[in-house]
Design a protein around this nucleic acid. Structure first.
Length: 109
DNA sequence: ACGGTGACTAACC
DNA sequence: CGGTTAGCCACCG
């Protein structure tokens, strides 16, 4: 039961549940834990993200953590994560890539 | 107990 | 679209 796990352990568990090609926002991960500590989620990722698919956790709007965009971009391209390419910027297509541990629907459209 | 901090978010200008 | 302000919550010394 995740209730006994520490916040960090719970975050790691949720992140590991995210399937390739999909992402969750920090707020969504925190919400999945019953909390709103989006910041705390980021702190856990910074500390233990080394062993986690941190690139599957993005900021609101579909942008990866600051200074980690390039590294994340390679993962997205490799996993087939739907991206929206702009003239000089890019972001994740949240409408299709957003995922929830309770909703594994692949194509809600 | 307390204040500072952060891989955040939303609202406002 | 970008800079500012404030709210948010968990962790650390």
């Amino acid at each position: 039961m995740p209730d006994d796990a520490d916040f960090g352990a719970a975050v790691a568990e949720v992140v590991r549940l995210i399937p390739a090609g999909h992402v969750m926002t920090y707020g969504d991960v925190a919400a999945a834990l019953g909390s709103r500590a989006s910041r705390a989620v980021g702190k856990v990722m910074a500390h233990e993200g080394s062993d986690l698919p941190w690139w599957r956790v993005v900021r609101s709007g579909g942008l990866p953590p600051v200074h980690h965009e390039a590294r994340a971009h390679e993962h997205y391209r490799a996993e087939g994560t739907p991206l929206v390419q702009g003239k000089t910027t890019w972001r994740i297509d949240m409408r299709r890539a957003r995922w929830s541990p309770d909703t594994d629907a692949d194509d809600p459209f």
